[in-house]
């Protein structure tokens, strides 16, 4: 008989461990602790015992009832806690209520980056007209009307002597005309050429740079532009200076960087040369000093210019120049 109650306790406690919800718990309560429950029923049987055995059996039975009741209460608490935990679950992986960000055009981004580098080197940003006198765009840059160098750029004309500037170089003349040396300027802006195909857009962007001072040498040009290339494309980027021709610089130098796509092995982007043209530059030709009244025996300096689209294409690996002006959000949102 005594063993019976202990078996009952064991069975009850084992069953409790398997209960995980309120319904199960209620069923348990009714089954064991309810008015007709097993524990209650068993206690009722105590009266049938011999009187001398009753006290001990009563103690034991009470002990069992208390144990089962306590464990039941614990299970109740455990189940309530568990329920609370599930019901108040916060899914931290749900998307947040975002503040939508916009995007800056990649041309703007690259222009800002180029300007930042040169401003750090003491250059001042200037701007000028996009519709320009033939004089500033050509004549004063040593490109007279009947010079073959005019063939290098296809020009949009507004009138006989007004053009859409074909490069940012007119800013060199405008700045020198308005101030005496030393000069250190950088001039970003839109330029226009009458050319539209897979690799050309009729409008694009350039940055022009000009430095005039006493004692400036070709080696200073190399240093300044080497530093720029390193800051823009990384210090491991190899570069080379190659003779070229611009009517307003002498000597003139084209600056090539190691192809960023193939690292010099030769690919379609670099036409298998391993090099990419990135900048035009040169020492200021004394002929342009004549137009602005600088003395070439006292002052020397250099100028450079680069196409921003080209820099952006290389920097971001963009393979189609037309994308810059289609304003497709799938493109713009990447920057």
């Amino acid at each position: 008989m005594m063993d019976g109650i202990l078996d009952l306790q064991k069975k009850a406690l084992e069953e409790l461990d398997t209960i995980h919800d309120r319904n199960g718990l209620e069923t348990f309560r009714i089954a064991y602790l309810g008015k007709k429950g097993l524990v209650t029923t068993w206690m009722k049987k105590l009266s049938a015992l011999a009187p001398e055995r009753r006290p001990e059996a009563g103690r034991l039975a009470n002990q069992v009832k208390m144990n089962v009741t306590r464990c039941y209460e614990e299970a109740k608490e455990r189940i309530a806690l568990q329920k609370e935990k599930v019901e108040s679950f916060l899914d931290v992986t749900l998307p947040g209520r975002r503040f939508a960000r916009g995007s800056v055009h990649p041309i703007t981004k690259v222009t800002q980056e180029i300007c930042r580098i040169f401003v750090k080197m003491g250059f001042r940003i200037v701007e000028g007209p996009e519709v320009e006198w033939d004089y500033y765009n050509f004549e004063a840059l040593n490109i007279p009307k009947d010079h073959p160098a005019r063939d290098m750029q296809d020009t949009f004309y507004v009138s006989d002597n007004v053009v859409l500037r074909t490069h940012t170089s007119p800013m060199e003349v405008r700045v020198m005309e308005s101030q005496t040396p030393p000069v250190r300027i950088i001039a970003p802006g839109k330029v226009y050429r009458r050319d539209s195909d897979v690799t050309h857009t009729p409008m694009f962007h350039q940055v022009e740079g000009l430095l005039v001072d006493k004692g400036i040498s070709f080696s200073d040009l190399k240093g300044t532009l080497t530093s720029f290339v390193h800051q823009m494309f990384g210090y491991e980027t190899a570069l080379r200076f190659r003779p070229s021709f611009f009517p307003f610089t002498e000597p003139s130098a084209e600056v090539d960087i190691r192809c960023v796509i193939c690292k010099g092995k030769g690919c379609r982007t670099c036409s298998n040369t391993g090099w990419l043209e990135i900048l035009g530059s040169g020492m200021n030709d004394p002929a342009i000093y004549k137009f602005v009244g600088y003395d070439p025996e006292v002052y020397s300096g250099f100028a450079f210019g680069m196409g921003i689209e080209r820099v952006a294409m290389l920097k971001y690996g963009i393979d189609d120049i037309q994308l810059f002006y289609k304003n497709d959000m799938r493109f713009l949102r990447q920057f």
């Binding site: 080197m121 003491g122 001042r124 030393p182 250190r184 430095l211 001072d213 400036i216 040498s217 070709f218 080696s219 200073d220 190399k222 240093g223 300044t224 080497t226 530093s227 080379r240 200076f241 190659r242 003779p243 002498e250 000597p251 003139s252 130098a253 020492m283 030709d285 004394p286 070439p296």
Partner: peptide, 26 residues
């Protein structure tokens, strides 16, 4: 100046040193 360019060309642009212009405050 035209002759200086020829000197630079024959020497090779790669062999011309790399220097920096003095910084000027603006």
């Amino acid at each position: 100046w035209d002759l200086m360019e020829e000197i630079a060309r024959l020497e090779g642009y790669q062999r011309i040193p790399v220097t920096f212009p003095p910084i000027r405050a603006s």
